[in-house]
């Protein structure tokens, strides 16, 4: 080491004494500049950059929405505007024209209900059970639940054809049976909020505490775990509803009438009504997800 030190002393003088970064302002100049400056250190952009980017992005994303609104108010090609298309939706005289759409919407709502039940009665208990009793399976469960994202829906759709020809023989070909297939599509979205919620709890500790106080497993589930998981469960249910209402591929492949397939059909005959319903669905989905987001934000702040 002493050789090293010698070496440093021999070669060091020129390089170590230069510190080009040293910069010292003259006091008078400093007095004028100093107090107004904000040192900007960090990844965040300046307010101006941020605003410009967000406004441009906002325009790109809002113009098509605005175009939908504008389109839904058009009176044919006359160039004037009217509320007649909105009125038509509510007009009982024209009900037959929108029969398919109403039927599709009802079907989608039924599918929503069943899919939510699948999430609550099949997925949720499994996740809690794995967390409590089989933590070694946690990674496997996650893999299975994420899997539907990596398999294109069209591929599963092809496979559903033979499966549903059997199901049709067993329970008929009503649209509600689509819920089993859509439940799979929903898995990744429904899994995540509950998983995040579970991660934040020490489920084993909670249930041991409750059990040591004399609670049975049923009580542990209903009185301890579910209340602690309600944010995750609620978010899962909302997201499930949004996914089901937006689902198109499976319904098309299995030629069942749902909200989305009905929209595509009616678009050929009455594009105005199609656009009105599409708008409503987008807004509905947005509100659902906004509620989920605010739930999460409140939790983060707490």
């Amino acid at each position: 080491m002493s050789a090293g030190v010698e070496d440093v002393r021999a070669s060091g003088t020129s390089e170590e004494s230069t510190t080009p970064l040293r910069a010292v302002g003259r006091p008078e100049a400093v007095a004028r500049r100093a107090l107004g400056r904000t040192p900007r250190v960090g990844a965040a952009p300046s307010r101006a950059t941020s605003t410009i980017v967000l406004v441009l992005a906002g325009v790109f994303f809002l113009v098509p929405i605005a175009a939908m609104v504008e389109f839904s108010l058009r009176q044919g090609r006359t160039g004037s505007y009217t509320l007649q298309h909105y009125a038509a939706v509510l007009d009982p005289a024209q009900e037959y024209a929108y029969d398919g759409l109403f039927q599709g919407t009802l079907n989608s709502l039924a599918i929503c209900a069943i899919t939510v039940l699948i999430v609550l009665l099949v997925l949720l208990p499994t996740m809690i059970l794995v967390e409590l009793r089989y933590p070694a399976l946690r990674r496997a469960l996650e893999f299975v639940c994420i899997l539907p994202i990596t398999i294109p829906t069209v591929v599963i759709g092809v496979g559903f054809l033979p499966v549903y020809s059997v199901i049709a023989r067993l329970v008929g070909s009503d649209a509600w049976s689509l819920a089993f297939a859509i439940g799979i599509i929903v898995l990744p979205y429904a899994y995540r909020p509950i998983a995040v919620n579970l991660q934040g709890l020490d489920v084993a500790m909670l249930s041991e505490a409750a059990r040591s106080l004399g609670a049975g497993w049923g009580t542990v589930m209903v009185r301890v775990l579910v209340p602690n998981l309600r944010r995750g469960i609620l978010a899962s249910c909302f997201i499930t509803i949004a996914v089901v209402l937006g689902e198109f591929t499976i319904a098309t492949f299995l030629s069942r009438t749902t909200f989305q397939t009905a929209l595509v059909l009616i678009q050929h005959t009455d594009p105005y009504v199609a656009v009105i319903f599409a708008l409503l669905a987008l807004v509905f989905g947005f509100v659902l997800l906004l509620v989920i987001g605010r739930l999460g934000a409140v939790r983060r702040r707490a």
Partner: peptide
């Protein structure tokens, strides 16, 4: 020397 106005990356 007054460094009040010297930015962080030049303060050494």
């Amino acid at each position: 020397a007054d460094v009040t106005a010297v930015p962080v990356n030049k303060r050494d």
